[in-house]
Every structure is written in structure tokens, then in C-alpha cells.
Design a protein around this nucleic acid. Structure first.
Lengths: 278, 278
DNA sequence: GAGTGGTCTAGACCACACG
DNA sequence: GTGTGGTCTAGACCACTCT
């Protein structure tokens, strides 16, 4: 039973018509990107739609390979994606089992407050409180891998959802990014989007999550008391080259957000630390 | 230039002598597990030791394949592990680049307070405050995938590091696990370890991290004021079958822990949510 | 013993980065 | 243009689960 992958889709999950792998061997990709991504997208939809039940078993790899008209290796590549997302299990000897309806966010929704807000149907807002250029301190040089004597651009922004303040964001940019940020109009909603259009790409990020007490500035901006608890997310983002492009610290009012992570024996991107490594 | 993988190692990172893939084709594994894991472990050490510099480039896949006497596919499998850990980049057209010294924790260190404490050289402590068996409420049945009318076992434990209280842990177990927990001596340090010896395996986990205010019970146990902020981690863990084995809620005193996550365009296990999904 | 996923090999072509 | 990683194929054997 051959199955044709459906057309269309937003972006990374795109799918293009597939009839046969064409002249074999080749990339096979035509419209929607890699073949395995289209297979993964199709399976993801089938799973979240409940086609295999809440805790059902998937067809065998061989069966899927035949259904989609691809090799077993390609099917495995597709399934690896779903497994990393925590959607299915995988163990030797038995069919894969549906784990849950993991709602995974795209990378850009994670990095961009604006994308995130819009994906929830909320109206994102932002006000630039300050932007300064100054010499980087030791910690900043460390995080951004800058040589001694480097300067950085530092922004402070208040972020709102539908008008309500929820987070304040302090971001340190290396010179080659900061110079672009400094040229943006002060009322730009999404810095991330603008930077992307200027060729600054975000591909990897390290996040650290903990609790801190609001300082005087936080309190003033967010409208809470000094010393009130805030959920803090610190993040270092790098471009495809591995060069740091951002070192940011976000402080959320309690009750406005929660962070979710999935991991498994095979894939563990999460860790727990004792003290502040600042 | 052929390179022999070094012997031994703790467990999952183990390495065994390799001369040639033996009769080819086969699993090739003899002592330390899969071939690609041994290659990954060797490369991991080389990288964290600084053999390629802080931001250096790795040899090409083909070169590594020759060095280790394996196929390119196996090398790629090894590199995929390192990439998921955030240790190296990977983009078409150029060599991989060292990203950072990501200190990744093993899965068990993440799930077990005891393992975690010991890996830091601290002395873990635990006191069982209560253990009750009662009918599961709707939320608990949902998380543990239990049918109506099921019972659950609920534990409350205070956790200490070197004698200092840092966290209180409320765990809900499904019947088949709870019945084992109930039989453990009240002074057992690690429930996780004991359960593993009884054949209960942990392979997948979903974590949600946010901030909550201490209730009366938290305050009494942790020695803080009522309403004081706590870092909360909720976690649903499943076994290889996909069956939930634990639904836990840990509340940490501020300043005692931080959680770190790595993600990338290719691998995103992290997400950010608006409200409590409880 | 049959079925299924895990691992490994060998070869191929393509897309992209960089000189 | 050359080198590099990304994708795909085809075939093989092994380890494990389950009946």
C-alpha cells in the first residue's frame, strides 16, 4: 500500500508530492526538503491525530518503508526525529509505541518572544528601555568569546503580552551584531526577525533556568516588589559557525510562563546544577 | 593513521579494544557496547581535553572513518551524539566546529537526586515524611494513564545535601510501582536505585519547570516562610514500554539548583508555555 | 522461531562553503 | 572547482521481545 505524502505546510515541516524516489540515490528532495522530513511530518500528523491511538503501536519500519516508497534507512531517520521529540518510544524487539502528544515548538518560537506570543494568539509588545555600548567585562567576554578590549552592546527591554508586562530582557550583543541592533528603530517589535533579515542566523542555544529576586530596576519595570521572585532564563545563542551572537537574561513574573523539556536515555539535553555558574 | 579505542570506562561511555570490525557487517560490539558509542566517547574526550582547541575544527568524516577503521555511517552516528549534546556544530560544506564543553549528565543523574548529589561529591539525604495509598484523582489518572477507580501511592520526602534541606519531593506512583515503594525501608536513600533493582526501568521523562509559592507544608519542611518562592520541577517518567512509572513534583529552595538545556535548529526538546497546564 | 529494531557497511549523488 | 557534510539506497547480521 503506497502512500503519497501530502503537499504544502508551513516551513520546516513542509511536504511535497512524492511518487517514487525518482532516479533513486539522489537527494530526492524537490519541494518540501529532505525526504525523511516529509515522512516525519506525515507520521507526526498521523500520530497526533490519533491514527495509532493514545498508546498504540506503529507499523514496523519495513512496512513504513514500503508504504512511503523509501528505504528503511530513511524511515529510521524520520522516526529518530519523532523519538527526539518524545513522541514515540523505541526499543529492540518490539514495535514503536506512541508516547504522547508532545507539543514541540520550533526553534524560532523559543528564541523569539514575538514568535512565541503570536503562536499563542497573544499580542506581543516591547519597549526598549535602554541601549548602551561599553567595554565588555570578563564574564561577557567569556560568554561571547570576545578578545580583551572588546566592546558590547547592551539592551534592556520590557516585554508585554496584550499590554500586560510579563518579562524584562537584558541582552548583550557582540560588536558585529550590536552594530545592527543599534540601527534598528526603537519601536521594532522583534529584534530577532530583523537580525535574521540582516543575515544573522541563530542555530544553537544553551539555556539555564532558575529563580532570582527582583532588583530595583526589575521591580520598577514589572510592577512588582523589590525582592519578589522571578523566573530567570539565561541563554547563549550561536550562529551556524559556532560564533556567539547573543547572551541574554530574561526575567519573568511568576505564573506567566513555564518551561518544558523532554529527554530520554538516548537523548539527554537537560542537566541540573548546584550553584550559580553565572 | 589507525587509532585504537582505549579500553574500559564506567558504563554507557565504555570503550573496548578495536582492531578491525571483525567479520564486518555484524554489530562489532564486544565489550563496550556499540561501535559508534565508543567512537563518540573517544571524540568527546578528545574535544573536552582541548585536542581541537576551544573553537577548532574537527577532521572530516572520511578522515575520522579511516582513523577509527569504521564506515562513514558509523562516524556520522557518533557525531550525531555529540551534536545533540551541543558539543559540536554541523553544517553542509564545512568541517564541524567545537561549540563548547557541554557537561552533560547521564539520564540517571537527572532522575535520581541521590545520583546527582553523589556526582557532585555531596552527601545526599532523604527523610520519608509520609506514604499514603488512596484513589487517584482525575489529574493523576491522566498523567499516569490509569483507568477510573485506580489507586495510587503518594510519597512526600524531604531531601538534603550534606544535612541542609534543599528540596521537597511529592511523588505519585501507579499501583505496580507503588506496591514496591511501600515495601522499601523508610530510611532508603535512593528509591530510584531500589526500583531499578526490582526491574522498574526509567527511559523517558517530560519535565516542566516554573516558580511557585511555598505552602504551609513546604515552609515547615524546608524552613522557609509561607509564600516564599520555590523552583518547581514537575516530571512524568515512563518505562521502555511507554508506561508511566512516576509523576513527581520537586520544589527547590532558591539558589540551590539551576536547570540547563541545550537545543538547536535540528534538535529542540525545549518549549515555553503560557499558563499552568498542571 | 518469527518478527522487530539496532548497528554496520559500501557506494552514490547532491547542496553548500570556500578559495 | 574542490572538499565537506546531508541524504538516500541496498543488503547484512545481531540482540532482543514475544508467542
Amino acid at each position: 500500500m503506497e502512500r503519497t505524502l501530502t503537499e504544502n505546510e508551513t516551513a520546516a515541516d513542509a511536504a511535497g508530492g512524492v511518487d517514487a524516489p525518482g532516479a533513486a540515490g539522489g537527494a530526492g528532495a524537490a519541494a518540501g526538503g529532505a525526504l525523511y522530513r516529509r515522512v516525519a511530518a506525515d507520521l507526526r500528523e498521523a500520530i497526533t491525530t490519533g491514527a495509532y491511538g493514545e498508546t498504540g503501536r506503529l507499523p514496523a519500519e519495513g512496512a513504513l518503508a514500503e508504504r512511503y516508497g523509501v528505504s528503511r534507512g530513511t524511515v529510521r531517520q524520520a522516526l529518530a526525529v519523532l523519538r527526539a521529540d518524545g513522541l514515540v518510544t523505541s526499543r529492540r524487539g518490539t514495535r514503536r509505541v506512541v508516547l504522547g502528544n508532545a507539543r514541540v515548538q520550533s526553534f524560532s518560537e523559543l528564541l523569539s518572544f514575538t514568535h512565541w506570543a503570536r503562536s499563542m494568539g497573544e499580542e506581543p509588545g516591547g519597549r526598549l528601555e535602554s541601549l548602551v555600548r561599553r567595554p565588555a567585562d570578563a564574564a561577557e567576554r567569556e560568554h561571547l568569546r570576545l578578545p580583551p578590549g572588546s566592546e558590547v552592546y547592551v539592551t534592556l527591554r520590557l516585554r508585554t503580552l496584550s499590554g500586560t508586562p510579563v518579562m524584562c530582557e537584558r541582552t548583550v550583543y557582540p560588536p558585529h551584531v550590536g552594530i545592527l541592533v543599534a540601527q534598528l528603530p526603537p519601536d521594532v517589535v522583534s529584534h530577532t526577525e530583523q537580525l535574521r533579515e540582516h543575515g544573522i542566523l541563530f542555530t544553537d542555544a544553551d539555556h539555564t533556568i532558575d529563580v532570582v529576586a527582583a532588583n530595583a530596576e526589575d521591580a520598577k519595570l514589572l510592577g512588582c516588589r523589590r525582592g519578589a521572585p522571578l523566573l530567570r532564563e539565561r541563554r547563549r545563542t550561536t550562529d551556524p559557525t559556532g560564533r556567539p551572537v547573543e547572551w541574554s537574561q530574561d526575567r519573568y513574573l511568576p505564573g506567566t510562563v513555564a518551561f518544558s523539556v523532554h529527554n530520554s536515555l538516548a537523548t539527554s539535553a537537560l542537566s541540573r546544577h548546584a550553584r550559580e555558574s553565572d
